[in-house]
Amino acid sequence: MEQLLHHLRNLGFTEMEAKIMVELAGKGPSSGYEVAKGLGVSRSNVYSTLQRLCQQGYLHRSEGDPVRYSMLKTEELTRMIAGQMKESLSFIENRMPRVEPDQQPFYNVEGDRNVMEALARELERAEHEIVVDVWREEAALMRSELEQAEQRGVKLLWSCIGSDTGMERLLPWPAWNQDAGDRHALKGRKFSFVIDRRWCMLGMRGEDCATQALVTEHPVMVELLLHHFTQEMVLYEVEQDLGGELAERYGPAYERIYRKYVEVDPREADSEVIGDFDGPEDSEEV
């Protein structure tokens, strides 16, 4: 009984309204006198509340002497309340004043739980498209949310790296003061999500590092991640189609091309390639 009253109050009914509605639902059509007697309250308070509930459409009122009141069927009541709430929420969402920032902010989210919850909330809101660039471990964590999005008709575009592939397709850009033997000692697995080409998350997660992510709707970051994803997928398809010819001309993973841009010493006027890279292992993309 008390829980029922509590939830009716949460829906905006007063204490007296809630008690009268429960009383009528349990006893059936009753006069104002009978309701007041059953609740042990004054008739004046009951009559004014009954009149208000009738005007709002929550009660039926029969003519006669005495006038008798009855509740709507439960399913009619809940459908009526749900419609009113939906209408109010829609009005608030569309009419609430907004101060648009000059630039879309960047947020840093820390902690595995916080990052995953923020991502799950946005995946639930996806309407058109989700672009995913992850390792298998992170893909498994979001499997349920991604499947639900796909069932809603959201288009999913994947780039997934297996846990047994040493590194990604593209070679990393080491810092100038980074030791040669530590160039690939990146702790954790990178991941990125772009949702409906407006919201994105870029982060790192792993057993040996704290989970962190950058979240923004800034169009520049969204565009960068989409271009990176497109480049990865185009390279993947080219490799599948011309793998033998590419390896024969450039070597595995196009080492000759990458080394021109990744391992360049800015002190050399001729942009001489220095150092030696082992080509990255193949990554699997779906």
Rank of each mutant, 00 (worst) to 15 (best):
L214V: 14
L214E: 05
L214H: 01
L214P: 01
L214Y: 01
V215R: 10
T216S: 15
E217V: 04
P219G: 01
V220N: 06
V220H: 07
M221G: 07
V222N: 04
V222R: 04
V222S: 05
V222A: 04
E223H: 12
L225V: 00
L225T: 03
L225P: 05
L226N: 09
H227P: 00
H228V: 07
H228S: 15
F229R: 08
T230G: 07
T230S: 14
T230L: 12
Q231F: 15
E232A: 15
E232F: 04
M233I: 11
M233A: 02
V234I: 15
V234L: 10
V234A: 09
L235R: 05
Y236M: 10
Y236P: 00
Y236W: 10
Y236A: 15
Y236E: 15
V238H: 04
V238S: 04
V238I: 15
E239F: 02
E239D: 14
E239S: 04
Q240T: 03
L242R: 08
L242E: 07
L242A: 09
L242H: 10
G243M: 00
G244Q: 09
E245T: 02
E245V: 05
L246N: 00
A247G: 04
A247Y: 04
E248G: 08
E248H: 13
E248S: 12
R249H: 13
R249F: 14
R249L: 13
Y250T: 00
Y250F: 15
G251S: 03
G251F: 00
A253D: 06
Y254I: 00
Y254Q: 07
Y254C: 04
E255V: 03
E255Y: 01
E255H: 05
R256H: 02
R256M: 06
I257Y: 11
I257K: 02
Y258A: 13
Y258F: 15
Y258R: 11
Y258S: 13
R259G: 01
R259Y: 03
K260V: 08
K260D: 11
V262W: 04
V262K: 06
V262I: 15
E263C: 10
E263V: 10
V264E: 13
V264W: 09
V264S: 13
P266G: 02
P266Q: 01
P266N: 03
R267S: 14
R267E: 13
A269H: 08
D270M: 06
D270C: 04
S271Y: 10
S271R: 10
E272G: 09
E272R: 14
E272V: 06
V273H: 03
I274N: 00
G275K: 04
G275F: 01
G275I: 03
D276H: 14
D278F: 06
P280D: 02
P280N: 15
E281F: 09
E281V: 12
D282V: 09
D282W: 10
S283H: 02
E284Y: 11
E284K: 09
E284S: 13
